[in-house]
Computed example of a mutant assay.
Amino acid sequence: MTDPNVPPPERPEVVHHTTINNPPPRRGGGGFLGFLIGGLVVAVVVIGVVLWSQGGGIEAPKGTEVDVNIDLPRPELPDAPRMPDLPNPPPVEPPSVPNPEPAPAPVG
């Protein structure tokens, strides 16, 4: 045991602490994401080249006026017999709906 009457040892005014953090190495995930983003960039570049190179070689028409005349021969139809008039339908009474039992409760 130490003597309680002895003063504690002197401490330095500045205490230096050094902390070293070594995180675990990362694994996977970066390769596929880079491949995906690279593919999207290539696709956008290809679409841009096609659009800015006059639409991929397709020329726009000079005008929009179109004249379409089709002359078809009209065949002569023979005189067809006329359809007879249909008879009047028989009278039918509407179906009856029974009253509900018990009577519905009044509203209000």
Score class of each variant (00 low, 15 high):
105 A>K: 14
31 G>V: 03
89 P>S: 06
46 V>K: 02
20 I>P: 00
69 N>K: 02
106 P>R: 14
99 N>E: 15
106 P>Y: 09
56 G>W: 10
70 I>L: 03
50 V>D: 06
81 P>S: 03
13 E>T: 12
63 G>L: 03
103 A>D: 15
10 E>W: 01
50 V>W: 10
75 P>C: 05
97 V>K: 10
80 A>P: 01
35 F>M: 12
32 F>R: 01
70 I>M: 04
102 P>W: 09
69 N>H: 02
72 L>W: 04
10 E>Q: 09
4 P>Y: 09
34 G>M: 06
62 K>R: 14
52 W>R: 04
76 E>I: 03
19 T>K: 10
14 V>E: 12
17 H>C: 02
47 I>W: 08
44 V>Q: 05
68 V>S: 00
88 N>Q: 08
103 A>I: 11
21 N>Y: 14
48 G>I: 02
26 R>N: 12
7 P>T: 09
67 D>R: 02
33 L>Q: 05
3 D>Y: 05
29 G>R: 03
12 P>A: 12
93 E>Q: 15
49 V>C: 09
15 V>A: 13
45 V>F: 08
33 L>R: 09
62 K>V: 07
56 G>R: 09
103 A>P: 06
100 P>M: 04
91 P>W: 09
50 V>F: 10
21 N>G: 04
73 P>F: 06
33 L>G: 06
26 R>G: 15
72 L>M: 07
6 V>G: 01
74 R>K: 13
34 G>Q: 01
88 N>T: 12
18 T>F: 12
71 D>S: 07
84 P>V: 03
89 P>Y: 11
103 A>S: 15
101 E>P: 00
90 P>T: 02
78 P>C: 03
46 V>M: 12
20 I>S: 12
42 V>T: 09
54 Q>P: 02
47 I>R: 07
36 L>I: 03
68 V>I: 02
33 L>T: 13
19 T>D: 08
90 P>V: 00
13 E>G: 02
12 P>Y: 01
57 G>V: 09
41 V>P: 02
26 R>D: 15
24 P>C: 08
39 G>W: 13
95 P>K: 01
54 Q>K: 07
2 T>S: 11
11 R>S: 05
98 P>W: 06
42 V>D: 10
57 G>N: 04
64 T>Y: 07
41 V>L: 13
81 P>H: 03
6 V>C: 00
99 N>R: 13
68 V>G: 00
46 V>H: 00
60 A>N: 08
40 L>H: 01
37 I>M: 07
15 V>I: 14
71 D>C: 00
67 D>A: 01
92 V>D: 13
48 G>V: 05
49 V>Q: 07
50 V>L: 12
66 V>C: 00
44 V>G: 11
96 S>W: 07
108 G>V: 07
20 I>F: 11
58 I>M: 14
13 E>D: 15
92 V>A: 15
82 R>M: 14
89 P>G: 10
8 P>M: 10
11 R>A: 14
59 E>W: 08
80 A>L: 14
26 R>L: 11
88 N>V: 11
77 L>I: 01
35 F>E: 10
46 V>F: 05
78 P>M: 04
83 M>Y: 11
37 I>P: 00
74 R>P: 02
12 P>W: 01
59 E>Y: 12
62 K>H: 05
95 P>I: 00
108 G>K: 05
55 G>S: 13
76 E>G: 00
32 F>Y: 06
54 Q>A: 12
4 P>S: 07
7 P>D: 04
